[in-house]
Design a protein around this nucleic acid. Structure first.
Lengths: 221, 221
DNA sequence: CATTATAGGATTGTCAAACAATCCATCGCC
DNA sequence: GGCGATGGATTGTTTGACAATCCTATAATG
């Protein structure tokens, strides 16, 4: 086990803060990120800001246009749909692998995360819902044993989150989402790869449909 | 159509040169990339070098360890195998989509690229083989119509190339590879998605097996 | 009036020089 | 031989500067 404690330089903190600001919607998609201003806000030098922005560009959260500078990535619906397609493929595979490989400990942990999600739904606690979902996914991706799938999906999730800030995941969706995740977990616990893949696929497709609806609502608004 | 001509700043050139140096094996996997030295070699300032390295880190060609600096990514066989798994999934999907969506022009272009590959095999011209393969893939990915698949696969290919420098794609593989690509193209031209997916999958699996063998040879050497 | 130059400010791209913090290898000491 | 101190090498970060580019508002022109 790796117990290394990171010194955590100025840049890494800047990256974290900026990422947080972006996915939380504090910086809107399309908004330009002026370097001088970020220097002021973060209290660091321009060089460090620029490097931090390059890192976020690598995560596709920021797009840097030559001679125009960085702005928050804008996600068209078309792109989002493509991301959901890839997610369906990879999350299906991840679920199938997890069903095959997850240890007892990992399955229990996933069950715990899902339970937390259920209570968050009951309490109507949006923040806890997000955290529980993230934990559930982290556990499943760790259990699938393929670090590349994990890495790619992490990136795709981050990008999809860019939509969340505008489409504010709708109300009725949470309980349905809980049922879908339950189906995945059941299949994983039953060590049934095919069922797990199908359940994960349905979950992604449902999320895609929900996002599409939310997007349409936004359009008319 | 976008006819924009890029001003192409110092950094972008540096990124290109460095990427070329890495995938060509001029910088060996694991080798440390000392900033001061790169400044000398590239003739640019340290700030620009650092930003260029951050970009390459985003492509996973370079890994930057805190307080230790950048080095060329080392690809373990385990990681490579995981990449091949994901490639199998995504290239299968890409081939299926291409079979469904490719226009006549695109199919013709793919046929042209494959013909170029055949002559390169006949002439035993390694460089042309690589170029033709790259073109074939670019065309297929463009034809599949999913930019996200394209982007992810591009990244995975670049990473797999890190192996090439040590495992020097073996001799007998090329004609076999040509047959596999032919099978993909045939399926695409026949507009047979399922067949295309299967052919692409076989191609990736064969590439994976070849890489594994080459790796094993290297081990004993 | 519409359209095209022009000027100016804002912003990015790049460089240079400096210094603290960290790492690593070497040397001397016990 | 193990162990701590020393010092050089390298990275992390800052500051300041300047050219190149972009954008906008204004002025000139037909």
């Amino acid at each position: 086990m790796d117990l290394r404690v990171a010194p955590l330089g100025v840049q890494s903190q800047a990256v974290d803060k900026l990422r947080e600001a972006i996915v939380s919607g504090h910086f809107q998609p399309g908004q330009r990120l002026v370097e001088a201003e970020l220097c002021r806000l973060l209290g660091i030098s321009r060089g460090s800001v620029r490097e931090a922005l390059r890192r976020l560009e690598g995560e596709r959260l920021v797009i840097i246009t030559p001679n125009r500078g960085p702005s928050v990535t804008e996600l068209s619906w078309e792109e989002a749909a493509q991301i959901y397609e890839v997610r369906a493929l990879l999350e299906g595979e991840a679920a199938a692998l997890a069903a095959r490989r997850a240890t007892e400990v990992q399955r229990t942990a996933m069950a715990g995360a899902l339970a937390a999600f259920d209570t968050a739904v009951a309490d109507d606690d949006a923040l806890s819902r997000i955290h529980a979902t993230a934990r559930f996914y982290d556990l499943m991706l760790a259990a699938c044993g393929n670090g590349v799938i994990e890495e790619v999906l992490r990136g795709l999730h981050a990008r999809i989150n860019l939509l969340r800030s505008r489409s504010m995941s709708r109300q009725g969706r949470a309980p349905q989402s809980a049922r879908e995740m339950r189906a995945i977990l059941d299949a994983v616990q039953a060590r049934a790869p095919a069922a797990a893949r199908k359940a994960a696929l349905l979950h992604v497709q449902a999320a895609c449909a929900a996002a599409k609806e939310a997007m349409a609502e936004r359009q008319v608004a």
